[in-house]
Design a protein around this nucleic acid. Structure first.
Lengths: 249, 249
DNA sequence: CGATTACTTGAAACATATCAAGATTCGTGG
DNA sequence: CCACGAATCTTGATATGTTTCAAGTAATCG
């Protein structure tokens, strides 16, 4: 399913990266870059790639060549262990850079699949590293992004290791809302791109437990939820349950 | 308590970093560097710092200036959430680089405390970034280390999210053994530097559960454990329980 | 339209936590 | 050096939260 209207409205230049005009600049790699440096960054970013829901951006064991900046849409990244048990490492939205875990072994270790109609900028990593040598600000921003990823993972480890189901889900929801708000999107009404099973998998819970907690929150007047449409009625109440404020993802 | 013999045998130059002669080169930052580049790296590494057990290397909210390469000893890094609940992010040994999570906000977010008599090399991060511009191999190795950290955290997330107590502890022990083996140390007999409570905290279990699992493994003939001395009698048996092979930490 | 998938809810089973007591080790000061 | 108290660890009994199993409903898809 392509979207003809959007396609028609795009000329060739807009198919290039165009970090310059990208509303995500403040979230993404080129934060704080000067005009001339932005141009250089844009030049190494090959093209924009469209990914349909259910389609994989990369899979474990794929050769690693590119990082991906999410321009639009929603992804989950997950890993399979030796027993074929799946675990979701993260849900990723607009402005986030994914594929960072593949640098160390030169192949991807996790799988990235789109949960919504998505679009990514493909960033060739070796060229990016070359650019770092000329643009210290870009290098530093990249390190901040990697470091942030580590911090986010630590927050998730804390969640998985110390919280009960109720706290986990409340944290998940407030965090999702904050990330939407940071992108100027509605933070009290949202569409959940992922299934109950995905949420549970991510939080270390079974889907039934997630469903029960949703019902409980609804009974308590904190949210309204029907299927994947979520309305947060009492953010402070949710936060009180989550009580531990979490990082960026 | 200092160790006079060691102190006496050290001259001033050996108090400098001496990556050159460091047995950890293959694990640490300077992997694959040429002699001349090694010298440049050594020059920015200020000094070696000795840390006594129980002493903090850094604390959350401390200004971030340095990464620390562990030359000798054993550390745990932990985070406190808003409720004062502690969660251990990792146990770190010789050759590992810690403090990476602080880059993004320019202050430390977790606390690092020595569990044994330890020694670290202090690496000024901004100077290191400058060096990256001249030494591409160093830059790339740093990115690999950060990426590896992310991969390790993902493995831990999988452990916390999907495993039962028995699997968690078996994974913890085999992983510890592997890391010791990678350093040329005995992997079947070891001293556990951390308490049962620390192990439990790290694995998302209570100390009583850890203790029970230790007893169970001992009854099953997999290990011998008395207090903090551990002997692994049947590594394959442990691995079979762990069954999911984990990353570097 | 029927079939499949996603979700909800209940009852029972299970793993781990909690509470509690006792044993051992460790540190410290008398 | 011994004694005391604190910390660490083990083990048992009970409590609790989450999972598992099961059934049913609603939405989605071909």
């Amino acid at each position: 399913m392509s979207t003809p209207a959007t396609l028609a409205s795009m000329n060739l230049t807009s198919l290039k990266a165009a970090c310059n005009s990208c509303i995500l600049r403040q979230l993404c790699l080129p934060l704080g870059l000067e005009e001339s440096d932005l141009d250089r960054l844009e030049k190494i970013i090959n093209r924009r790639q469209r990914i349909k829901p259910g389609q994989h951006l990369y899979r474990a064991r794929d050769d690693f060549h590119h990082l991906y900046a999410i321009r639009r849409g929603f992804f989950k990244t997950y890993e399979l262990n030796n027993d074929g048990i799946e675990h979701i490492n993260g849900f990723h939205m607009t402005g986030e850079l994914i594929g960072l875990d593949a640098i160390s072994d030169e192949f991807h270790v996790c799988n990235a699949v789109a949960l919504e109609d998505s679009e990514v900028c493909e960033v060739p990593f070796l060229k990016l590293e070359e650019l770092f040598r000329d643009i210290p600000a870009l290098q530093h921003q990249f390190h901040r992004i990697m470091s942030r990823e580590i911090g986010v993972d630590h927050s998730l480890m804390m969640l998985l290791g110390t919280m009960r189901a109720e706290e986990k889900l409340a944290t998940f929801l407030t965090n999702l809302a904050e990330r939407l708000a940071a992108r100027g999107l509605s933070s009290d009404s949202m569409h959940l791109s992922m299934s109950r099973e995905d949420i549970g998998n991510y939080l270390g819970l079974k889907l039934e437990t997630v469903s029960r907690m949703f019902s409980k929150f609804q009974d308590d007047g904190l949210i309204e939820v029907e299927r994947r449409n979520l309305h947060i009625k009492d953010m402070d109440g949710l936060r009180k349950i989550a009580h531990c404020q979490h990082g960026g993802r």
